[in-house]
Design a protein around this nucleic acid. Sequence first.
DNA 1: GCAAAGTATGGAAACGTTTTCAATGAATAG
DNA 2: CTATTCATTGAAAACGTTTCCATACTTTGC
Lengths: 339, 339
Amino acid sequence: MSRLTIKDIARICDVGTSTVSRAINDDPTVNWKTKQMILEAVQKYHYVPNNSARNLKRSESNNVAVLVKGQNNNFFQSMYGVFEDELQKYGYTFTMREAGTYDDEMNIAQELIREKRLKGIIFLGGMMENPDYELRHIDIPYVLCTVALKENHPDCSFTSIDDEKESEKAVSYLCEMGHRKIAMISSLKSDIGVGNLRQKGYKKALAKYGIPYDENLVGHMKENIPDYSYENGYEVTKELLYSGNDFTALFAISDTTAFGAYRAILESGKRIPEDISIIGFDGIDMTKFMYPSLTTIKQPGAELATESVQMLHAEINDKPHTYKVFDAALVEQESVRHI
Amino acid sequence: MSRLTIKDIARICDVGTSTVSRAINDDPTVNWKTKQMILEAVQKYHYVPNNSARNLKRSESNNVAVLVKGQNNNFFQSMYGVFEDELQKYGYTFTMREAGTYDDEMNIAQELIREKRLKGIIFLGGMMENPDYELRHIDIPYVLCTVALKENHPDCSFTSIDDEKESEKAVSYLCEMGHRKIAMISSLKSDIGVGNLRQKGYKKALAKYGIPYDENLVGHMKENIPDYSYENGYEVTKELLYSGNDFTALFAISDTTAFGAYRAILESGKRIPEDISIIGFDGIDMTKFMYPSLTTIKQPGAELATESVQMLHAEINDKPHTYKVFDAALVEQESVRHI
DNA sequence: GCAAAGTATGGAAACGTTTTCAATGAATAG
DNA sequence: CTATTCATTGAAAACGTTTCCATACTTTGC
């Protein structure tokens, strides 16, 4: 039961431990024939190197963490598997950690780095006003994945979509469909992250179509309810509906909040899309099976994850910083109608 | 940056490394005063023990894995955070791994055990016909959490709910509400796990209320679609609806399949619950915000996770096996009506 | 042929802990 | 006052690797 050590293999093959070590680490200097023999013995006796010893000696782990901002986010959760598989391809082991809305990610990150002696870390979601400054104490390679950035190009690797542009796309689509009174479910009032960018896109689209911005049509999530939750979408929409401000379309900052909005709207006796059209954001699985199915902006989750891992691997190997901004796709389904 | 070793602390405090080691491991033989001094230095200089070295020496890790059967299961995903927190309380580090429907868990488990030198493992979900036999090669402490068991009391620790009883509860509730033609979304035809138990409960309830079992009213998930997915629920329900067999109520094997069923039903022009009542199983967040909200059997996810971790900790410390079967709650919402 | 270079190997030191063991001095017992 | 126990400590060995260095052959170049 994996009790064998490198010495046992060495004895069995009648070679030195260093040769065995070289063989299993694919060192080219070891003779083809001996290597073959050693690997066979390894197979036969089920030898597995002791990772603690290996890491100790190499004075490193090959742990990589993905630190997620926000809990129970369906979109992010759908990416976990991709991260895991992709990291494994490069031989990394994977730790996932969810940070609550009000947790300080940087503290958690530093804790993780120390505790697990991480080789790299991927920040997933959340927001950074000034990444270079905020990340100044993160002394290992890192990549930002869909982290809302204030400055366009911080001095680090990142992947994302253009939240502002894609939101503009969503709202423009509503405009093209003839809507002029368009409400929005936005994030916390105090938010300066993704929510902020998406709201900017919303405003931009309105301006483009000559529609005056009406702050009464923008509902902000409640502080006392988990953000981006079904419930928050529900509550915000209810408030919008009963505020007396009419609207024919609704842009939800995420699919989950759109889901909550569905209930609020249907409950009020209105129909989707006959009375109110809705467009969401993220493109999670569920949208296809909502009724009516939710038109949404689909983020390329798998691509984002895959690319982030590749970038991290590059960072770890001292390659220069790089970044990639993906396009999101408008998925037309049943929740928007032309008026 | 965590570059300090125990020797540095020893030098700083002018004591031997062994004393430092004893101090940080809370060995009672070390003098109160010196211990105090050492711990202060540890704090002050941010010393963090090197886990690799520690594990190497102790020849063990404190890794615990949770091996999940089935991917993208909302109910299980909601438990991850609880597992993580709870395991951390006992000082374990946590790895999560999802196994696909057709993967061989035992292989994955053994791989994990070797690779990460696990101290314990929790199996989450899935099914075992004969646990003692199937788990004969798992030579570390383990706990089964909501694993469908054929024999009632295998010789190991486990937590679960009584799937058969709770399903019977669900279907009995439908009967009490006056329904006689009750369809069911069941698992794969070949499934002998949870699905099987829940179907047994369904039959039992029917029998109790003198309703003949009609296999035409039981739809099985498709093999070519991920099981327990929205899509599978949708497809199965569509088939049930168009088979020409009338029913006034539907028992869905999970909330996610119930979600798919909603769409199929509404799409067909029928109403919920006026034409068809639905009851789900699991009690995930989403059910509250579906429209109409889904009446369901709520599994106590957090309690199951917490208890499982406690059991595992006990197992690791050579305590005898134990088990706990939790009650699930019928959550009455809007999707079932009295006829 | 002989120096230089290359190839394949093993020995041994090191990584940072924990733990055994012996040593020290203080305290207690007789 | 001596013999025993007790409390506290440090030195050093060990955990299982990787890697530097030295060694012993081969091969190549002239």
